[in-house]
Amino acid sequence: MKSFFTLLYKDLLCEFRTKHAIYSLLVFVLTTVLVLLFSILDKDFSVELISSLFWIVSFFSTMTGLSRSFVLEEEKHTIMFLRLQSSVTNIYLSKLFYTIIGSLIINISITIAFSLFLSGFIIYNYTLFALTILIGSIALSSAATILSAIISRAEFKGLLFPLLSFPIMLPILITSVQLTNITLTNFTFENELNYLQFQLSYSTVLITSSLMFVKYIFEE
């Protein structure tokens, strides 16, 4: 447990010192929103379009930035030292929490950018929106972390990651879009709990199986 906190602290410290990932991600989010605004100018967006744009931006920024957690270690040849220092399970868990924190930051910044620039983005149900962001981030990160570990050992990393991650993350994206739809409209629905349960169960199963099998990825 101690080594897990050490590893997480190391990741956050590295990020805090260089700020490479977080700046590039924030610029990415801002660029996407601005491009959207320039292309539509003052036309109104429908709620469905806004919520799917929200999760498209979130998916691509998660994929480009945070997928690199394991890949960076492999490229810098530091994964060997990490494995000397602690077990693969601990490395996986620290990367998972790092990804969750990063994904939360991304989603919150997308929320801020959207509510600043998009007039149609009005949240009615704040509790549900916060839950959607939180559970959506956890679910996206649970898929991204294990896939990042898999990709780090393969060739053609840049090509393979979107191809592998998109279908695995799609159930999360579909349900997140539905949930965001619900929070952005003023109506009450009865099935929002179903979607949250779906995301929670999906990420639980993914994290459990990752914990079970992640050690085989680094076996030679």
Binding site: I146, R153, P167, S210, F213, I217
Partner: peptide, 13 residues
């Protein structure tokens, strides 16, 4: 090893 791990993740999804 890696394709087996991916296949398990794929089977779950």
């Amino acid at each position: 090893n890696i394709s087996a791990v991916y296949n398990i993740i794929a089977g779950i999804s």
